[in-house]
């Protein structure tokens, strides 16, 4: 058995001790996780971002245009001093402006227009019979939107539609929560398989 498997097995058991209560063994494993994650993140970002995207192209390939993002990046450090804080607003403005410019059209298209288009489909199947799933989707979209329309009091048929919208929302929340439970169980089963087969060698 290699050292990595032994360390991973011991740390997994250490983390699982939290199920009983908080304890020093768990704290040690938790601190190790945080420390290693941050260290790994820093190394990866140093080599892949600061070196690969800034220093190497700027100083060895002579890409002088990179001086602009370098200066903008340095201005962010202005936040460390109250007198120079205002300077950090420049790179933040550039980030927000360019980020919004890139994201808004893409999100509007993918999350709104395309989704609306998928909702507006024929409610009759080619054989002339009602397309049940489309009817359910349509009812779900309309009644949920009614629920989130607060400029009119939820009374009468409007209120009943809003109530129906809450049922659709509850079904969605229930499904999402069930998938979350399933996901966490899968993670635990995956870890148990590692403990039983790789670490303790009890199963194949």
């Amino acid at each position: 058995m290699d050292a990595g498997t032994v360390i991973a097995g011991i740390l997994t058991l250490a983390i699982l001790t939290f199920l009983y209560r908080d304890n020093p063994v768990y704290k040690l494993a938790e601190s190790l996780l945080i420390g290693v994650s941050i260290g790994y993140f820093l190394v990866i970002n140093w080599s892949n971002t600061i070196m690969d995207l800034m220093f190497v192209p700027l100083f060895t390939q002579g890409k002088l245009m990179l001086i602009i993002p370098l200066i903008l990046g340095l201005l962010m450090f202005g936040r460390f001093n109250r007198k120079t804080t205002v300077l950090s607003r420049i790179p933040i403005a550039v980030l927000i402006g360019s980020g919004a410019g890139v994201a808004i059209p893409a999100m509007l298209d993918a999350r709104t227009l395309q989704q609306m288009s998928a909702t507006v489909t024929p409610i009759l199947a080619p054989d002339g019979l009602p397309n049940i799933s489309e009817l359910v989707v349509m009812a779900g979209v309309i009644t949920t939107l009614i629920y989130f329309y607060f400029s009119r009091e939820h009374r009468g048929w409007w209120g009943k539609s809003a109530t129906m919208g809450t049922y659709f929302l509850m079904i969605f929340f229930g499904t999402t929560f069930a998938y979350t439970v399933m996901s966490r169980m899968s993670t635990f089963i995956g870890r148990m398989e590692f403990l039983l087969s790789d670490f303790l060698k009890l199963t194949q």
Binding site: Q114, Q115, S117, A118, V137, F172, Y179, T180, M182
Partner: peptide, 13 residues
């Protein structure tokens, strides 16, 4: 699995 309901609408569309 936790992300499946997030992506289901993208499958439908």
């Amino acid at each position: 699995a936790v992300m499946m309901t997030t992506y289901d609408p993208y499958i439908s569309s």
